[in-house]
């Protein structure tokens, strides 16, 4: 059975690193893995999505609407945007941080209010928390990706050590301590 994870956010938030770490973790557990990324123009502050799929044999590189077991959202509006991709029993792990898109900044559109509550009212299994504050507590707002992974780890049976090893294999040596701290803060949030 193939499992589907989507990592969504705003270009520049570090979604690629999160998918890299997940991919690494699943490979060490002997799964077949595919990770699809988006490069280029949308990385400039646009809505970005990365797909991580693992199982005995993975064919398609992407996850489609209604298929995701988990959607990890780095930004609240993006969680709402991509919730169509969530499966019936799926879980939306989302940062409560809000980043205004340009149409909101220019006044052409408004940022919907009470997104978290509305998602819950729809029957979505929402696991929302403030990942940005925890990232800042760990040492940098840039660690928001690792904080989210830490929180996501509660939905898996992998050991803490296995997660730590995957993180260590994917981040630069001088950032390891900060990222492990970020992971722990997210895991305990």
């Amino acid at each position: 059975m193939t499992k589907n994870i989507m990592i969504v956010g705003v270009g520049g938030q570090g979604t690629l690193l999160a998918s890299k770490i997940l991919g690494r973790l699943f490979v060490t557990k002997d799964y077949d893995v595919k990770v699809s990324e988006v490069h280029g123009m949308s990385q400039r502050g646009g809505s970005v999505v990365t797909y991580v799929r693992y199982g005995d044999k993975v064919y398609s590189p992407i996850v489609d609407k209604g298929e995701a077991d988990q959607v990890i959202s780095f930004e609240l509006l993006e969680g709402a945007r991509w919730v169509e991709y969530l499966s019936k029993d799926g879980v939306l792990v989302t940062n409560t941080q809000q980043i205004n898109p340009m149409p909101v900044i220019t006044g052409a559109a408004t940022y919907p209010s009470d997104i978290e509550m509305k998602l819950k009212d729809m029957g979505v299994n929402v696991d929302a928390f403030d990942a940005l504050s925890l990232a800042e507590e760990a040492g940098s707002a840039k660690c928001v990706n690792i904080v989210l992974l830490g929180h996501l780890s509660n939905h898996y049976d992998f050991t803490e050590e296995e997660w730590h090893d995957a993180i260590k294999a994917c981040v630069k040596e001088r950032f390891i301590d900060m990222n492990i701290k970020a992971f722990e803060l997210g895991r305990n949030a």
Partner: peptide, 20 residues
């Protein structure tokens, strides 16, 4: 047919790429 269980009911503002 595939089930798409969740739709966010309100209009979601687009997030086009922008100059950094």
């Amino acid at each position: 047919e595939k089930e798409v269980p969740f739709h966010f009911q309100e209009e979601i503002p687009a997030r086009p790429p922008a100059m950094c």
